[in-house]
Write a protein that binds this DNA or RNA. Sequence first.
DNA 1: CAGGATCCACACGGATACTG
DNA 2: CAGTATCCGTGTGGATCCTG
Lengths: 121, 121
Amino acid sequence: MRRLYTPASAALGVEEVIRLLEGKWKLIILFHLFDGKVQRYSDLEKLIPGISQKMLAQQLRQLEEDGIVSRKVYPQVPPKVEYRLTEWGQALCPALDAMLKWAEQRDALLLKGVTEEGPAD
Amino acid sequence: MRRLYTPASAALGVEEVIRLLEGKWKLIILFHLFDGKVQRYSDLEKLIPGISQKMLAQQLRQLEEDGIVSRKVYPQVPPKVEYRLTEWGQALCPALDAMLKWAEQRDALLLKGVTEEGPAD
DNA sequence: CAGGATCCACACGGATACTG
DNA sequence: CAGTATCCGTGTGGATCCTG
């Protein structure tokens, strides 16, 4: 169903990439780990108000399986687990940045387009 | 529930962007419309094998409402509807491209990371 | 051809309770 | 603290039938 990484060099397609980041939490979690930031489970819980423990743990596990985040467990009495991006995960930054940039262009391009192209008549 | 565009300049956040592109079909559809490509409903149906009519129509309508694709109806007996990206939709290209680039880096960075950092022990 | 309407299954996701 | 387990509602998405 969900395999670790994937066979050999698979050259991910569009659909594969989508799968890796699907769900409404993945990207939000990643945003809180960018720039080398290291967060504990409880940190992420605070940083992402709407998320439930189930979703947080689940999404983190998937991101880990997919090689995007790495998990570090400190074997001590009050458990401590740190999450950080893998090198590949960090490499997602430009893409996310491009998405935000895109969002910023919305008003300008949308209004422009609306005035230019009428409702096809 | 789902409004046309949005009030005034809203400066979309991460979560908003995610909403716009959520679902496993949105990006796939967009990929088939990049580079100014114009596709008919039936074209998209053929280009995206797994999708159902319902999903295709639904996603297209959402993308249209969100100002990412535009729909052009030819009022003729055998109906003809064309879909293309709006200017803003086209602007998504760099972001998608960055995602694909990211995917391509996977093998190199993943293997590297795996050898460097052991499983925290 | 381009969908709308409907029914249905399941996965996603939330809340709560419990554990090491 | 960092989860897991469970129950459950909702949304997502597929299949089918029907229409202008």
